Amino acid sequence: MPVRRGHVAPQNTFLDTIIRKFEGQSRKFIIANARVENCAVIYCNDGFCELCGYSRAEVMQRPCTCDFLHGPRTQRRAAAQIAQALLGAEERKVEIAFYRKDGSCFLCLVDVVPVKNEDGAVIMFILNFEVVMEKDMVGSPAHDTNHRGPPTSWLAPGRAKTFRLKLPALLALTARESSVRSGGAGGAGAPGAVVVDVDLTPAAPSSESLALDEVTAMDNHVAGLGPAEERRALVGPGSPPRSAPGQLPSPRAHSLNPDASGSSCSLARTRSRESCASVRRASSADDIEAMRAGVLPPPPRHASTGAMHPLRSGLLNSTSDSDLVRYRTISKIPQITLNFVDLKGDPFLASPTSDREIIAPKIKERTHNVTEKVTQVLSLGADVLPEYKLQAPRIHRWTILHYSPFKAVWDWLILLLVIYTAVFTPYSAAFLLKETEEGPPATECGYACQPLAVVDLIVDIMFIVDILINFRTTYVNANEEVVSHPGRIAVHYFKGWFLIDMVAAIPFDLLI
């Protein structure tokens, strides 16, 4: 008679799926529990143990900040960024110097990925580790590398530091407007667009060049630039800015003055950032001319202004700041037409079709709590990747769950009947059967004279019903998954307890 339990259901295979997918890609990662103190490590794979030199037993239950890997060259700011990422709910990448158990130093890129439950609360953290440099290539500990984003994938490793954006290309926007319009339909740009040429040739750093990471940081200074100062900065030398009595002219307006920039070969870094931020506020060169004239017309309804409409929906549905990093990277690809469009465009503009998908598509409701890094690593669709929660398995109709209350009560009843059979069957065979043979035949009273025979008949009927119930009862397979398919249940029961239950259900007393 089957006594099969499996009270692990309803099970959740999400954690096993993450481990299996990460292991298949030869990654070095740990999984931490966000619900406990210090976000203790609950799993670390073999790749991480080989990377740091510690065994799994030495890593388990330690804080996922990996303070046991810190050393003299470990930056405090990087460690603080990892700790801050564990307090938030967004994906974050941090470069930090770690030390192995043998004392060797290596520069590592740590990717902190939160995993949320159905309520939107962070319950786990996945920390992925990628070695960037070994100890002989690690720089000085005073050099802070965590304020910069990861290198873009479309640049060669040897040319990542030679990417320079020439400031004269930004200063000569109005001069290039006529050349853009003359391109017409034969050019790649839309009317009114501004073409910015980027020099990728390796050259020595000069005062006129600005690194790509500095251009990325310009967006942080746009908020500090007032509207009046932006307007004066875009007017140009024809209309000098008016300053109040006793007030000095704005240095932001002076930063885009061609006369002032041409007199000296070098520009201050602050002026460069502010000038680029001011130019980015204009949607095209037409807006710059309109600002000089004193009238700013409404933005025209053409394809170039609607190019950012799908980007707005993608940004609203993005799951991490990696989408913004990807957008900034692609927006700086050289030799393309940049349409400086305000994100607050007309909502009635139709979304044009684009061959290049900048932001990841909208994630469906079932995966809105899973970050983009987890979705990318697992390579699963929205119909396959579940949320991290207890999910009731989908069972067929008329199927009994093996952990249901009805099955528990039924098993206790069958257990009592088995005990009765084990006690009274030998007793009936030894004593009652002998008395029946010696006594007179009682054929007239039937079952009324033999109450134990009636009980034995009921017990046999219950055993037959138990066999039928076992054909529709779920079970737990070797992978700790609840199986509810009727065919698989029948095959599993035939290979197991079916023969024993059938022999126990045969009414031998009635056959004798």
Results as ranks from 00 to 15, higher is better:
V138E: 15
R181T: 12
R4K: 15
M291P: 11
P168W: 01
P352C: 07
T375K: 09
D144L: 14
S179D: 11
Y99N: 01
I96R: 01
R269V: 07
V3T: 11
V8W: 14
V113M: 15
A79I: 13
V59Y: 01
E365C: 12
C39W: 15
L248H: 06
E274M: 13
A260L: 12
L210G: 06
T162E: 08
L267Y: 14
E357I: 07
L87P: 01
N45K: 01
P361L: 05
A268P: 09
G294S: 14
K93C: 13
V180S: 08
S318T: 14
K93G: 09
D136Y: 05
T145R: 12
R4I: 14
E289T: 08
Y43D: 01
S179T: 09
T145P: 13
C64A: 15
M137I: 07
L210R: 05
H147P: 03
A85Y: 01
E23A: 05
S283L: 14
R280C: 08
I96Q: 06
C265V: 12
A97G: 05
I42R: 01
V112W: 01
A228W: 06
R35W: 08
L248C: 15
V195S: 05
R159Q: 09
A169P: 13
E118P: 08
E214N: 13
R301V: 14
P168C: 04
L380H: 01
I126C: 09
D323N: 13
N33R: 06
L165S: 14
F48W: 13
F29N: 01
L316W: 14
T375I: 09
S263M: 04
P237L: 12
A97L: 14
R100Y: 01
Q84S: 13
R280V: 12
L155I: 14
A142C: 15
A260Y: 14
E130R: 06
P202V: 01
V94G: 01
L165Y: 14
Q61Y: 03
D102R: 01
R269H: 12
P2L: 06
D342E: 07
K93Q: 13
F348S: 07
M133Y: 07
S140P: 15
L15D: 01
A188P: 07
K362L: 11
T201W: 04
H221F: 15
N369P: 07
G246F: 07
V115K: 06
N339F: 01
A290M: 15
N128V: 15
S278A: 15
E58N: 01
I336F: 14
R62I: 01
P361H: 09
R281L: 07
Q75W: 01
L165K: 06
I126K: 01
R328L: 04
M124W: 13
G381N: 07
T174M: 05
L171M: 15
A382H: 12
A160N: 14
A203T: 04
L380M: 07
T216E: 10
N369F: 12
V195K: 10
I30R: 01
Q75N: 15
A282R: 11
I30C: 06
P299K: 07
V138A: 15
S153W: 07
M124P: 01
D346T: 05
P297V: 10
V131G: 11
S283P: 07
F98R: 01
P347D: 04
I330C: 14
D346G: 11
A277D: 06
Q376W: 01
V36L: 15
V138N: 06
